[in-house]
Design a protein around this nucleic acid. Structure first.
Ligand SMILES: [Zn+2]
Ligand SMILES: [Zn+2]
Length: 742
DNA sequence: AGCACGCCGACT
DNA sequence: GTCGGCGTGCTC
């Protein structure tokens, strides 16, 4: 027999190997194979691959086929449905299959070390163990064995988990001895198996929630549902009940959430309800645990998996429901490597398994609203806050006129209007919390010399290095280049350097000076570098230790702070001047989410937005709390200009040391596409918004198609054009299918 | 990805 | 003359 093996090398094909007669193998099993001649080391290199097909014959001559060196495990680590999913993904994003394999498989599974299914041992006494205990046949010096037999005998619930036995001070050796002597025996059970009932709370669903739940559960299986629910409207309870229904019929559930929402509190809520039936894939997990979760999901042992973007690649034996929370969130789109979108892939997987998929958001993406409009998604609304918290009032602070002052460079200058400072002061005096949102890390985005024209330009990028005074460094936020913070001008030597503009670090310092008796907490990726630090900071906000919070994006997502009654948005105008056609959608989502952070039942909360464009319609929409209407207006605008989601776009992004050959390359790609495709429209090429990055010129070619399907049909043409025109890969061209950022 | 092969400039 | 640079192509 011949096994067709997929190898983790970036080639768009699989390899045939001879399967020894004695071996029986199945699709999805891991194998060790040799590849190449390996003349240098005298041995060909050995790699771990996955069997994708087993067949009688191979198109390759028998003599050229190498044997499979070893079957690494006795079971398959993926199934056919998974392989089909990976194949679809590779095609859709024009990526080599094996590159996806590398992306999708946990490291430990890609290695050649043998895997074992994660099982816990549950112990109980054998007949001979029971009589040995009762007749006290064991010598008195065998104290540990006697104690162990007594302990196992006295349990009301048997068999008993190994961990509980170990807790009593029995070592692994004590236990194996009892097993070896025939006194005890064990059964293997999944660590995610539970005999306990799901712990439903005596929580009364609102009429709206109940109606929504009924609508989803009675809908046909292959439906996509979009829940539009304002913060606090009880989306999570809906998810929990849907999950419970699914696992009660023996199905598995995948819940995708943004990285930032995966907090201990969130997990605690799931564990409280579902006990050990839940596993979470988060960044802190080790390779071994990831592999265990993978295998448990694959063989059907794991009922519920909560995970971030990459969890979409987990194989399931009986997947019955997919939920994508905060479906608008940008973190679902991978930016580097294969630019896949987990929400879009989730839709494919649901379709593939013929199961329902539920998307939820307080600010649905235009992509999803478009699908609603086309009748592909069913829209459900949760308009009343289940917790009775009142909607915040939104105020605009007109910053026309005093904008110059904050740009003058004096660090004494606060980027916050005097009236806002008063509001913050009053809030703190009332023992309530205030939150200041500024989406810029660091102390100041630029450093300048007042004597000459020196600015803190990154030596390798078209960008300024941000000053981080705490760390005494200049950081380039694009390429990561770091150098010490200069104390005198690197160009003229004068000690007259100033910090221009505001970042969270500067704002923190200034606000601490304004409110010396209150605890000012900064929340950003510089201050909280690890997830644990972030969770600790969030806890400080929840328990009231922090009074005034200054933060970036990090505070926008997912968390509700009931005691925050005042929210200030320092600067929202950047988005309105952006060249990205999605900037306005983003701004509306971001501001709606920021507003959703605040408030509780008894207290009226306020959101203050500083802007130099107070008449912009996005603010009126925000004040009327009318996300859907405004989003639909944006959607109409996108249609008019033939932009996504009405049209599909893909961007060919390339870079090189010199601009001229790079632009020529992209012009050649454009010409090839224009000559060979009716459906595709090209625009550009043009230098990227950041023209130079790490000393390489960046340029891009926009390609638009009337639909995603049309784009898919023509994608091989784009691929061919690139591989043909850039054989040496010196332009590092990548195709960003359904690009989200430009 | 790795590795071999091959074709040119430059260095004992 | 050969050493090594990398551009090109192959691996079942
Ligand atoms: Zn100077
Ligand atoms: Zn840089």
């Amino acid at each position: 027999m011949i096994a067709e093996v997929l190898l983790p090398i970036p080639v768009n094909q699989s390899f045939d190997y001879r399967l020894p007669e004695s071996q029986t193998a199945v699709v999805g099993q891991r194998v060790l194979v040799a590849l190449g001649t390996g003349k240098a080391n005298n041995t060909p290199r050995q790699i771990t691959g996955i069997i994708v097909a087993i067949k009688e014959t191979s198109p390759y001559p028998d003599a050229s086929l190498k044997p499979i060196l070893a079957l690494l495990d006795s079971f398959a680590i993926v199934d056919r449905a998974w392989l089909d999913f990976i194949q679809f993904t590779a095609r859709y994003y024009a990526a080599p299959l094996a590159k996806l394999l590398i992306n999708a498989l946990p490291k430990h599974i890609r290695s050649d070390s043998p895997l074992t299914l994660p099982k816990l041992r549950y112990y109980q006494l054998t007949e001979s163990g029971i009589s040995a205990h009762k007749t006290e046949i064991l010598p008195t010096r065998a104290t540990k064995q006697r104690a162990l037999l007594r302990f196992l005998h006295d349990q009301d619930k048997i068999p008993i988990n190994e961990a509980l036995v170990r807790e009593q001070g029995f070592t692994a050796h004590d236990i194996t001895t009892a097993v070896d002597k025939g006194y005890a025996t064990y059964t293997l059970t999944s660590p995610y198996h539970s005999e306990e009932n799901v712990c439903s709370p005596d929580y009364q669903l609102t009429g709206e929630q109940q109606a929504l739940l009924d609508a989803i559960t009675t809908a046909p299986d292959n439906k996509t549902h979009l829940i539009y629910g304002v913060t606090g409207s009880g989306k999570t309870e809906i998810y929990l009940q849907l999950i419970e229904k699914a696992i009660n019929t023996g199905q598995q559930v995948l819940l995708l959430i943004p990285e930032i929402s995966l907090t201990p509190q969130m997990l605690a809520r799931f564990h409280e309800r579902f006990g050990n039936r839940v596993a979470a894939l988060h960044s802190g997990l080790g390779d071994k645990v990831r592999a265990d979760i993978w295998l448990a999901a694959m063989n059907g042992d794991l009922p519920i998996l909560i995970g971030t973007r990459s969890a979409i690649f987990t194989p399931f034996q009986r997947l019955g429901l997919i939920i994508v929370d905060e479906e608008h969130d940008l973190s679902y789109k991978q930016q580097e490597g294969i630019p896949y979108h987990a929400r879009d892939l989730a839709r494919y997987r649901a379709h593939q398994h013929n199961i329902p998929i539920v998307l939820g958001s307080a600010t649905p993406s235009l992509e999803s609203l478009y699908q609603v409009k086309k009748g592909h998604y069913q829209l459900h609304q949760l308009v009343t806050r289940a917790t009775q918290a009142t909607q915040p009032t939104i105020h605009l602070i007109d910053r026309r006129g005093d904008k110059q002052a904050s740009h003058a460079g004096s660090s004494a200058n606060l980027p916050i209007a005097e009236i806002l400072l008063q509001k913050i002061r009053q809030t703190l005096q009332r023992q309530e919390q205030a939150l200041v949102f500024l989406n810029r890390r660091g102390f100041s985005p630029v450093m300048m010399c007042r004597h000459c024209d020196w600015k803190s330009e990154c030596p390798t990028c078209d960008a300024y290095q941000t000053a981080h005074t705490r760390a005494r460094q200049l950081h380039c936020h694009l390429c990561g280049y770091i150098c010490p913070l200069p104390t005198q001008c690197p160009q003229c030597g004068q000690r007259d350097l100033i910090f221009v503009g505001h970042g969270t670090e500067k704002l923190e310092t200034q606000l601490q000076a304004q409110f010396p008796h209150h605890h000012v907490l900064r929340l950003d990726r510089d201050k909280q570098t690890t997830t644990n630090q972030l969770h600790a900071a969030l806890e400080q906000i929840h328990n009231g230790d922090a009074h005034l919070i200054v933060g970036t994006q990090l505070i926008v997502k997912g968390h509700h702070f009931p005691n925050v009654t005042t929210v200030c948005v320092v600067d929202s105008d950047q988005a309105l001047f952006s060249s990205d056609f999605r900037a306005e959608e983003r701004l509306l989502q971001q501001l709606t989410q920021v507003a959703g952070r605040a408030g509780r039942e008894s207290q009226q909360s306020h959101v203050y937005i500083q802007t130099t464009l107070p008449t912009h319609p996005v603010f009126a929409a925000l004040q009327q709390q009318d996300y859907l209407t405004y989003a639909n207006n944006l959607l109409a605008e996108r249609e008019k200009y033939e932009l996504p989601p009405h049209h599909a776009i893909t961007i060919v992004k390339a870079s090189a040391l010199d601009a001229a050959p790079l632009m020529q390359f992209l012009r050649d790609v454009k010409a090839l596409i224009d000559d060979n495709s009716q459906a595709l429209t090209t625009l550009g090429p043009a230098p990227s918004p950041i023209e130079r990055l790490k000393n390489r010129f960046q340029a891009q070619l926009f390609i638009s198609a009337p639909s995603r399907m049309a784009l898919q049909r023509e994608l091989p043409l784009i691929e061919k054009a690139i591989t043909h025109l850039d054989k040496s890969r010196r332009f590092r061209a990548v195709i960003d299918v359904d690009a989200m950022e430009n």
